[in-house]
Design a protein around this nucleic acid. Structure first.
Lengths: 353, 353
DNA sequence: CGACGCCATGCACACGATTGCAGACATTCT
DNA sequence: AGAATGTCTGCAATCGTGTGCATGGCGTCG
């Protein structure tokens, strides 16, 4: 592979001159500069970034750590981040922290070894696990920005959506529609106060709607959603609405409700959270909370770039919180009224009061 | 940031000794090795991979170039690749080649500058655009493996699914169900012979089913699918089935058919291609072709790793073609019969003849 | 005509690691 | 006791660039 030295010999100059010529340094006369650039292009020269990075002590690389990318929530984020990072002239090193406990720390360590100029870390549902590593990175002047929920956020640079507000809007919407028996479906609240649920609860309390613990079901997989939905439908007094903590869970809920012959929203109101593309593909389109992935990822990258470029006037960690929006579509309606006149209606209707 | 030299001074040895100790070289006595490793751990030493890579002339990095990741087809691929690459002890550098014409070449160039040990290049719908760059890389002993459709495949290492076979299976399925007016919906065939369509056409020809050009509609965006579906429904003799070239288009088709009050599969059969998760979220579940992303990506990475490790006995480019499978779900049924005996049979049964 | 200044270029070192080779020291054998 | 052997460690070169500093040549001005 051709080096500066090779071009230098060919041009009859020193490698320093070639280096400067290719960098467009004003120290070099235009004639030699053009001559050398032409030579370099002809010989197919490509800078050895490894050597360059070593010398200039910076890599123009930023690392992105994401729990996974097969789950439909993250790809959009990755897309935005990748575009923004490239536009800023940096390369992207992608790491998937997966489900193993220490994988996140390993990702950070790897990026540290590779001397990434900055790190974007999206915490999964368990919050941040590589806490010490991140603090160590910050201590050694490598900026790290977190995204998602984290415990003890004030220590970190953080960008996050205000899930509590989103949850509140969602809860209020259901209350205003008149729902009084609302089921909850989702993963267990690993993240301490599970914000979107906290907001949701608050809305219900304000509306005087009780939240029955028997209607709060843990479910993460397809299988578990099936079990959960089946359990809810079998209740004497089934819910009139289901709040799935994530759109992907809502999609599974759709599927199993459909299989059970329950139609949305006539027989059951369903709402989600995230506003994936999925939400508009579903029939009926899903009412959800979102519309903030794009601004969120923009803020995410922007903050890091500011820090990487050293444009931060003060060094206090910053937290940026964006407010998501309630997106009303067609998966909600007022609950069906309980038939007052005993057994006139067919039992199948009773089930879904 | 702490270097080998720092630890060396602290331990009263030379940096060579530290290097060897950390690498676990048998040249170093166990006592000093342990002592040094302990010291390194305490001081939070992390190898400078940039310097290391320069010296050892290899980066343990492989590049992955993908058109985009917001489109639901690619994330699964990225996930598998990332996992496999990490398991093999390599880092992943992700590049999105996007829609601009020369972006792909820029990605390859960037990876070349960074001295990636190998490149995984997923060609978009326009096939390979960075042809010369890829050939140049191969010429300089950096293996490149392509995935997707490419023109003049024999020059490259290539992994691909046999779309023609998949299309054939799909076409045959529809023919056997009795469909004779079938609409086509998708992007224009950038890729020369658009294999999945070629196979599909062949199946129809074999079944003696004509393919009307008025039923072949170009559509890529939500908007265009809406226009297309509307046009089809407005025909005097509308189709009984729609083949969307991709699951994502099928999903949009679902949406617009639903809006128009057309129910699937009773009023219209819909099939897709790719088998995204999406396909099972839709109601009814989508009949499609797929089931090969996983083996495909496995073969993709495996082939590259073999080449990177130099285990290839001969240097001829290889092509690996995997056969996808027809996945029959609930979005297809036989076309509604034209009521022969006027109104005797109940329409709802006619629907499902 | 000499001195000074400027422009273009080369020299040499640094970045932080790996590694062949030589050498120091201890041990064992004759 | 001296030599041979083996074990461990240090020296120094190297990977390919970038860049401060010195230098050489040339033009200009006093």
């Amino acid at each position: 592979m051709v080096r500066l030295e090779d071009i230098a010999r060919q041009a009859g100059v020193s490698h320093s001159t070639v280096s400067r010529a290719l960098a467009g340094s004003p120290l070099i006369s235009v004639e030699t500069r053009d001559r050398i650039q032409k030579l370099a292009a002809e010989s197919g020269y490509q800078v050895n970034q490894v050597a360059r990075n070593l010398k200039v002590r910076s890599t123009s690389t930023i690392g992105l750590i994401v729990p996974e990318v097969s789950n439909p929530y993250y790809p959009k984020l990755v897309q935005h981040v990748a575009d923004a990072v490239k536009a800023a002239g940096f390369s992207l090193q992608l790491h998937l922290s997966g489900s193993e406990q220490d994988a996140e720390a390993q990702c950070v360590a790897s990026l540290r070894e590779h001397r990434a100029d900055g790190i974007l870390l999206v915490t999964g549902e368990r919050g941040i696990v590589a806490r010490e590593q991140v603090l160590a990175m910050s201590a050694s002047k490598t900026p790290v920005v977190l995204m998602g929920w984290v415990d003890g956020a004030e220590e970190f640079n953080l960008v996050t959506g205000d899930d509590a507000k989103g949850g509140y809007a969602l809860g209020r919407h259901l209350v205003e529609l008149g729902h009084r028996r609302i089921a909850l479906l989702g993963k267990p609240p690993h993240r301490g106060p599970y914000d979107r649920l906290v907001g949701f609860r608050r809305a219900l309390e304000e509306g005087g709607v009780p939240l029955s613990e028997t209607l709060a079901l843990e479910a993460a997989s397809d299988e578990e959603v099936y079990v959960g939905v089946t359990k809810l439908l079998a209740l004497d007094d089934p819910p009139t609405a289901i709040f799935a903590y994530q759109d992907s869970l809502a999609a599974l809920t759709y599927k199993h409700l459909g299989d059970a012959g329950v139609s949305i929203p006539q027989d059951m109101t369903v709402v989600g959270f995230d506003d994936l593309d999925l939400a508009t593909y579903l029939t009926p389109r899903l009412t959800t909370v979102g519309g903030h992935i794009e601004p969120l990822s923009a803020a995410f990258v922007d903050l890091l770039l500011v820090l990487v470029r050293g444009q931060a006037e003060e060094s206090l960690p910053r937290q940026i919180v964006l407010t998501p929006q309630l997106i009303v579509r067609s998966s909600c309606t007022a609950p069906r009224q309980r038939p007052l006149t005993s057994s006139l209606s067919r039992p199948i209707l009773d089930k879904r009061t």
